[in-house]
């Protein structure tokens, strides 16, 4: 059995979960800081800023999804890991990278946009929806990366 192949595939799963998760954690924390600042002055805005805080959390979930799909595809979750060649292992590793890299950076960018949205909510709560939409636009690129990673994972011949 070529253990390098499966090691590379598992590394891919780890990277997807790791970087997307770190990006989300940092971004959700950043928006949380800003949201807490607003709530400390006006507690009635809690529910509005909470939505903004949740937005950059999705990348972490996408990373987790990719990790589970990848581990499932290579049989690790079923208990019978596939005998992958080094090339196949590299392909799985590459398949995870869109989610790992785009997940990290889009979460950070979305966090900054969401903080700006918190600013809108603080000053003009009636325009809270606009702040949410602007921050949600960043999500597009995380979803595109998620799609690419899924397509690759399911189309790599084993």
């Amino acid at each position: 059995m070529n253990s390098l192949g499966i090691t590379l595939a598992i590394t891919g799963a780890v990277l997807a979960a790791l970087f997307a998760g770190i990006g989300s954690a940092r971004a959700v924390g950043l928006v949380g800081e800003a949201a807490a600042g607003v709530v400390s002055v006006d507690p009635s805005k809690f529910s509005k800023v909470l939505i903004l805080q949740l937005l950059p959390g999705t990348q972490g979930l996408y990373g987790l999804l990719i990790a589970i799909l990848l581990l499932s595809r290579v049989g690790v979750l079923g208990g019978e890991a596939a005998d992958l060649t080094t090339a196949q292992g590299l392909m799985f590793l590459a398949a995870s990278l869109p989610m790992a890299i785009v997940g990290y950076f889009s979460a950070m960018a979305q966090g900054r946009a969401a903080v700006a949205g918190v600013g809108i909510t603080a000053k003009k709560p009636e325009h809270n929806g606009k702040g949410i939409i602007m921050a949600a636009m960043v999500e597009t690129y995380a979803i595109l990366a998620l799609l690419v990673s899924i397509l690759l994972i399911y189309n790599i011949a084993i």
Partner: peptide
């Protein structure tokens, strides 16, 4: 992360600007 300094303070200030 230096470019994201004082997120908490700035958000609180923005809420206070209404007064």
């Amino acid at each position: 992360m230096s470019t994201t300094k004082y997120a908490n303070a700035v958000a609180a200030i923005k809420a206070m600007e209404n007064t």
